[in-house]
């Protein structure tokens, strides 16, 4: 069996495949473990965020954006953990909710059980418990290469170095 133009085709093929398999080469068989955001004692004490953890993990950016819109546009300053999760008032329908639960295969959309009312504020409410930005926010954001623009406008909280 004759292979013509091996001198150009083989190197080309190898370069192409190496580009495709570059993540294997870059990682070199080892990578950092997936980060686990660290909870402050205060956050641990509260037990539950404004919504359940799976929901907060996946959807916190939308919750924060909703809070921003509602506060800035509508002047609505308070968030009730049972009634105000966005799918409860924006979409009417149990079917959609069931489908969402199936597709996310989690109880991510279970409304918050605390029933508390919160003041909608990143700096005042969120950062009160999660005062450790570098250990809580940045861990996952850096791991995934996400750079949210929260702190372009908001004042970054000072952290107590323990």
């Amino acid at each position: 069996m004759t292979f013509y133009d091996r001198g150009t085709i083989l190197p080309g093929l190898i370069i192409g495949l190496c580009l495709f398999l570059s993540p294997f080469i870059y990682n070199g068989g080892k990578a950092g473990k997936a980060p686990v955001p660290e909870l402050t004692p205060k956050a641990k004490e509260a037990k539950q965020c404004v919504a359940p953890k799976p929901y907060m993990t996946a959807w916190h950016m939308q919750l924060l954006d909703n809070w921003r819109q509602e506060v800035v546009r509508e002047g609505s300053r308070y968030f009730n953990a049972n009634q105000d999760l966005w799918w409860n008032n924006q979409f009417d329908g149990q079917l959609l909710e069931k489908w969402r639960r199936f597709i996310t295969s989690s109880d991510a959309s279970t409304p918050g059980a605390t029933g508390k009312t919160y003041y909608k504020s990143l700096q005042v409410t969120c950062m009160e418990c999660h005062s450790n930005k570098s250990k809580f926010c940045d861990e996952c954001h850096n791991y995934l290469g996400v750079s949210p623009y929260c702190w372009d406008c908001h004042v970054q909280p000072k952290e107590d170095k323990q």
């Binding site: 294997f24 990682n27 070199g28 068989g29 990578a31 799976p54 993990t57 996310t104 791991y143």
Partner: peptide
């Protein structure tokens, strides 16, 4: 619209690309 936990997604992807 139907968000998932992307930290876990990266854990899976990195696992594939490091043979763990």
């Amino acid at each position: 619209l139907i968000r998932v936990d992307i930290t876990a997604v990266k854990e899976l992807a990195i696992g594939l690309f490091t043979f763990h």
